[in-house]
Design a protein around this nucleic acid. Structure first.
Lengths: 211, 211
DNA sequence: TGTTAATAACTATCCAGTCAGTTATCAGTG
DNA sequence: CACTGATAACTGACTGGATAGTTATTAACA
């Protein structure tokens, strides 16, 4: 036939990333079980057979997606903690800022949904996410809060719970966007939400007279 | 053969509820797609065929589960709003108390997971949950906060965002329990979390001098 | 022209939904 | 009270369709 375009290109180096990226979209849309490997392959511009050149099983693809989503987020977290801590309110402001930009700019929402939805079916993945990302982020925030308590900036109370309170509205806003906005709910503007929450949270957690 | 125990009992009246209860457990564990109707039937103490005497399709069973989970929660919500509002902090305290007891005593967590995880596959169900429960609860809290702002009790700011901030830590605590506790994470004691959050939130949202 | 990335058609399996047959239950009868 | 249909709740084996995973073959490209 005509030799216009070749039927496919051999691009061994790029395929795995492309497949994982496509899989992220499909998994985030449908969940693990309802996602068809054929769809993932098609979205990656490849045949199903090609997926099996790079991954053993569907579960393997899922694993790659979840693990890949950890690295950049962990990077952002480290970037904050690596910087000099500064006064407590600044640190919190920075943390929320990064959380918002990560939530807005990456597929955190989709992955969050996946992890929540498939935790029971893939406990090792939930564990990986917990151990390598969530627990570390929460732990870092917890330590920062505990340190501020020692310095007398922050009220008494469980610092780990304070850390959860800190991130909860943003994460719930993300889940809201993923879950209810597609069926017509009014979204929460994450930046505004974060701004207001920052005010309220600091106001609520700082000791009298520190402000 | 021996006439010891009959192979089954005819209990038409009780079956639907039993099936829905069993389905809730299985769906909450595995999600919609990965749940086998055979498992649901077995857990309900019945054969798969019997399920189809009472429900048209698997989706129909899922619908029943999600809808059934709305009623009691809506009831609890109405109970609060029906009572005289009282001063703002009392209302908030009450709201959080009910949220915690609902979260602890019912399968809110499992259903929450299901709705989040399957929203894209079942938009009508996400819509039902949003319209009939979530939006109403959030709307009610929003109104209460807006009213308190008018009375000068509460700071300026978006009342809807305040409402989200109010419930976020509890809901995230529930999702934490469902997602990460099974893989070894330390749980958040919901009652303690709510107590601390109540303090922080009120402290952060009330105008100076109101306390 | 040899190597191998990639395809496309195939197989095996799993499971939602069906249905013919079985059995609990009960009203009616002797 | 014992027996007997009649009824319909219930079972379990079956089917059809969908899809995870395999493989024989093709074609890119060095």
């Amino acid at each position: 036939m005509d030799a216009g375009q070749p039927k496919f290109r051999r691009r061994k180096a790029d395929r795995p990333d492309e497949i994982v990226a496509a899989a992220l979209e499909i998994f985030a849309e449908k969940g693990f079980a309802a996602a068809r490997l054929d769809d993932i392959a098609r979205r990656a511009g490849v045949s199903k057979g090609a997926v099996y050149l790079y991954f053993e099983t569907k579960e393997d693809v899922f694993r790659a997606v979840v693990e890949r989503a950890i690295a950049p987020n962990l990077g952002a977290l480290r970037a904050i903690l690596g910087a000099h801590p500064g006064p407590f309110p600044d640190l919190i402001r920075q943390l929320l800022g990064v959380l918002v930009s990560v939530a807005g700019g990456t597929s955190l929402g989709g992955v969050l949904k996946m992890v929540v939805g498939e935790a029971r079916n893939f406990p090792e993945l939930a564990r990986i996410w917990h151990d390598e990302l969530v627990a570390q982020a929460l732990g870092a925030a917890t330590e920062a809060i505990a340190a501020a308590q020692l310095r007398g900036e922050v009220r008494a109370g469980d610092p780990r719970a304070y850390a959860l309170q800190l991130v909860a509205p943003i994460l719930l806003g993300v889940l809201w966007r993923e879950t209810f906005v597609p069926v017509g709910a009014r979204p929460f503007e994450l930046a505004d939400l974060a701004g207001q929450h920052l005010e309220t949270f600091l106001n609520g957690i700082l000791k009298e007279g520190v402000r």
